[in-house]
Design a protein around this nucleic acid. Structure first.
Lengths: 244, 244
DNA sequence: CAGTGGTCTAGACCACCGT
DNA sequence: CGGTGGTCTAGACCACTGT
């Protein structure tokens, strides 16, 4: 309606980017919750004092980043993590036939402790910060597939270490119970030999080649929320990457 | 200018998608060559009988797919593969410090032959088709890093098998000399033990864990243009993946 | 300076959805 | 049917580039 500079926005960004930042912060703050229907384009445009096309551009970028889901005829919703959507996005293993692998948890142990230097670096924590460490073995069809060592800041997930059990899929649990949304991550892969301990956990012979994954997961503003070190006995399965 | 249905287009697609298809085909056919400046938005809009905004949407998608490069104040250009851009896009290895690895070719052998069943499947070839097989060892700082077995259809790259030497970076060479542009690919990773032959080629002990990559590369219309099987002795390096 | 892509607006019509 | 997102248009102004 009025003009390009309206409210208290000292930014030097395009209007649509400022609109996007405002909408993202509404999700980040919990003002808009996962699964919730948000106002339509015209309502947002009127409220923010910009045109509908500008709102559309902001919503389009947020949809591309998987923060929103738009459905013609229904409306725009905040993306809600489900076990299925999380596996599809962040679990890249497929079997020999190309079918996605759905892992089960075979064994899990949760501890609490003071963050070690390596953990502080990965999770951007201050000295003395408390972390929750989850060690678990996951499998497919009852056979062990990978051993994961997961570290998260306790401050983000209070009570996680004391819960009676840890859910099989973590990221949807993080979102639903702690309001922490995983938005992306970085993963580093290499190959290692199974030592005595991994061989026992994964039921393979010592020396078996394993795929090792070193993953850091981020939320909004690239804030680290999880560090995960996995070793996998693939047994005919593989890790899939799309190049583009 | 006129309306939504103008020329001979029996499609049931949005206008911008039809525009995009036409523009892609101009690149695919070689009408527009890599590095070339293409007409501006208004010229294309006038020529195709649509509005500038519609052309913009098509160009935007093509830019997102790395088919075009747009530079404010200069114009829109067909994306040109360079050794650097190809490494950045399709070579995901980084050293322990996180720096991208730039490989050299240490050893290479080129042969010609009739496609085997596995090769026919991967490259969608008919029985009796001729393929070129490239076997090479690449390294960093003179030390062997990976052994690649590359298979391409000879029909796409005539004379490649008879060339005096094979360039270190293939995809830019494919584009520049054969007009074949790699647009994307699929990669499957797993871990294996070094056998006698790989151990010798990569200068490691037999049994050393290696990262194996099985890659199929595609051009326009998802047409397969290359199958590549690599085994890598990482030695502190790693394969990087961005999750999102 | 002229030409290009980048942003922003205002309005129209269509396709789809639930009631 | 009314409401939503999806498409398409026409025009304006800005920011950047090279001459």
């Amino acid at each position: 309606m009025s003009g390009p500079d309206d409210a208290a926005a000292p930014a030097l960004l395009p209007l649509y980017a400022q609109v996007k930042a405002r909408l993202v912060s509404r999700i980040q703050s919990g003002d808009w919750k996962p699964g919730q229907l948000i106002p339509n384009e015209f309502a947002l445009a009127g409220e923010l004092g910009v045109s509908q096309g500008t709102v559309r551009k902001a919503l389009g970028e947020m949809t591309a980043e998987q923060l929103l889901v738009r459905r013609q005829g229904r409306g725009t919703f905040v993306q809600r993590h489900t076990p299925e959507s999380m596996l599809f996005r962040f679990f890249n293993f497929h079997d020999a036939a190309g079918q996605p692998i759905v892992p089960e948890t075979l064994w899990v142990k949760v501890r609490k402790g003071i963050a070690k230097p390596a953990e502080r670096t990965r999770l951007a924590l201050e000295a003395g910060a408390v972390v929750v460490r989850i060690s678990r073995v996951r499998g497919r069809e009852g056979r062990p597939f990978d051993h994961e060592q997961i570290v998260v800041p306790q401050a983000l997930f209070p009570g996680l270490a004391d819960a009676s059990e840890v859910p099989n899929t973590l990221y949807d649990h993080f979102q639903q119970f702690y309001g922490v949304t995983a938005t992306g991550g970085e993963e580093k892969l290499d190959a290692v030999s199974a030592g005595e301990r991994e061989a026992g956990l994964l039921d393979v012979a010592p020396g078996t080649p394993l795929l090792r994954l070193d993953r850091t997961m981020f939320s909004f503003d690239d804030k680290p929320i999880e560090w995960r070190l996995s070793v996998c006995a693939l047994g005919g399965a593989h890790y899939s990457v799309r190049l583009g």
